[in-house]
Every structure is written in C-alpha cells, then in structure tokens.
Design a protein around this nucleic acid. Structure first.
Lengths: 154, 154
DNA sequence: TTACAAAACACAATATATTGTATATAATTT
DNA sequence: AAATTATATACAATATATTGTGTTTTGTAA
C-alpha cells in the first residue's frame, strides 16, 4: 500500500475494525519509512459495471471517482470522511444492485446527486452545478429554490 | 467482511495483490458459509488536500512534486537524498497539519522555501528564483542580502 | 482470430493482521 | 455548553494474510 505521504510501498496495519455494519473494513496504517499514519477502507468491488459516457466511450466503473467527486463537493463543509465513505458505499451498492453491466454516466450522476441531496445542501448544489454543467439551468434553479423554501419553512 | 451473496460476516482471503500502481490492494475473498468468492478493494480514505493555483485551478496535493522541485534546486550541492527526504516529510507534515482542504500554491511555496532556507543557501536562492518567478524582485533581493550579511557577520 | 493484458486460480513458506478491552480527543448534535 | 458519537490511540493473545511462482481464463485490442 503506497504511503500517500512519501510514496513508500510498505506500511503496516496498526488497527483494523469492521465498519458500516460489517460491509467494509477500516484500517489504520503506518508507513514503514516516514512513520505517518493513514486510514484505509476495504470495500466490496465487483468490476463488472461499465459506465457509458456521453460520447459513447466505455469505462470501468470506479468508486474512487465517485468518491473524489463527492469529496470535492464537500470541501469546507462539516461532513466527516466516514460519512462520505458511507455515502459512497451506499451509492456503489445501489449501482451494482441495478444488476446491469452497462450504465450511462447520466444515471450514475443522478444516483450520486440523489444521495448527496440528503447529506448537505451546499454540497448538493455544488455537485449538481458540476454534474449538470449548467445546461439544465431551469431544473437547477428549481432545485435551489426548493432547498431555500425548505430551509425557510422547515 | 459481509458476504455480498449470503450476508455471512466471515470470509477469508484467497489472494491479495497490489493494484493501481500500488495505491490500493485487491483481495479475493471466499465466504466461510456459502463458499462464494468476491473481490474487495482497499483504498486510502482521507480528506484530500487540494492546491489552488494562481489561475484558480485546483489540483490534488502531491509530495513528489515538492520533492522533485527540491532535488532540482539541490543539483550539484552537497545534500544527501535522505536529507531531502527528511525535509520533504517535514514539509508534508506541516502542510497537512494546517488541517485545510484547500491551500493556495503560494502558501505551499512559502513553506517549502522556509524549509530549504535552513538546508542550503544556494538551493534556497535557486528554489526562490523559480518559485517567485522574479516577480517579487525587491523581496527576493532583500532575502539574498540577508543571506550574504548573515554569512559575512556569522 | 490472434494476441495481449487483467483477473482468477493454486500452493507453500513466511510475515503480518485481527479483535477484545480500554482511554483520550475531536467532531456533531441537542 | 453538555451530551453523544466518531476517531485515534495502545497492547496482547490468537488467527489470518502476503507474496513468489506459475497456470488458466476472460475480456479487449490489434
């Protein structure tokens, strides 16, 4: 496991716990070279799902991309990494449970948006703004208004 | 690790390999109860630090880039690789300990410069000349004068 | 349709991880 | 601000994973 700090290839496990109702394992690792610690997550990964891009290109579904998209959307927001990971696992499960080997990227985006919606309003708007690419302004504005209304009235 | 087929909580590892250029570990697991196999992926789960470039661009922070910058600045200077690595580790720790998910590239540059300053004068000037891009000539000249004075008087 | 690459499979010798129990601290929620 | 939850920490006894070598299968590219 390449250390994210110094790139060293060796690290040893310092702690290891079941997480998310035993659907994953969270480990604490320590780099052999620099001694820095980092957290890892072991998740089930069935590589049979392909994402069909808008241009028609096909790419293997990669949770990490989903995760980094969510992480970006959550920047400076009070959302713990474990929450993001849980969300990611939920999204992955949902996508895989569709039982399809090919899924259009739009559908993936919709599923992720749906999941983020319940997590954090700001993150949701950020993600949506990137994902929808401002092409669908009407829907986007409607979504924002809905959130604002909910905040005002809720 | 909960089996994706029968939900059994116990599974054992049948095979384990580094994946994605050693950034993750791919395991093949076998459920203790139903005997079915599935693949898991262990990935790093930590808040990413992003570098905000001058133009506004965002890029994931990469120590190796810092390191290669220092190595270049130390060319033909009597500085061992382990010294550079130690410096790099210190820089990384400092940056991560800021606890921020977004850091302007200027700040990174300042931290690196500060670290190099104590390492080697020539390397420092070289690094500063690249990093400051001679835009901040006054400060740069002042820094050089300070170094020269320190050498003369110290 | 062949050729290449990635993933799955097997096995054996060695090295490392797991899990209960427990404390401290940071982050969220009320 | 207090209460709750999550994360990080430590240690020790036990159980399990890792990695080289090599073969086979499957999917993708030539």
């Amino acid at each position: 496991m390449k250390c994210k700090y110094c790139g060293c290839l060796e690290s040893k496990v310092v702690d290891s716990r079941m997480a998310d109702g035993s659907t994953s394992i969270r480990r604490r690792r320590e780099c052999v070279r620099c001694g820095k610690r980092f957290t890892t997550l072991e998740i089930i990964s069935e590589p049979a799902v392909y994402v069909i891009k808008k241009g028609g290109g096909r790419q293997e579904f990669d949770v990490q991309k989903i995760r980094s998209g969510i992480v970006k959307a959550c920047e400076k927001r009070p959302i713990s990494i474990s929450k993001i990971d849980n969300l990611m696992i939920g999204i992955e499960n949902k996508i895989r449970s569709l039982g399809q080997s090919e899924i259009p990227s739009e559908k993936i985006g919709d599923i992720v948006m749906d999941a983020i919606k319940d997590l954090d309003d700001v993150a949701y708007v950020r993600y949506a703004s990137v994902y929808k690419e401002f092409k669908d302004i009407d829907t986007f504005m409607k979504e924002i208004s809905e959130i604002l209304n909910k905040k005002k009235n809720g």
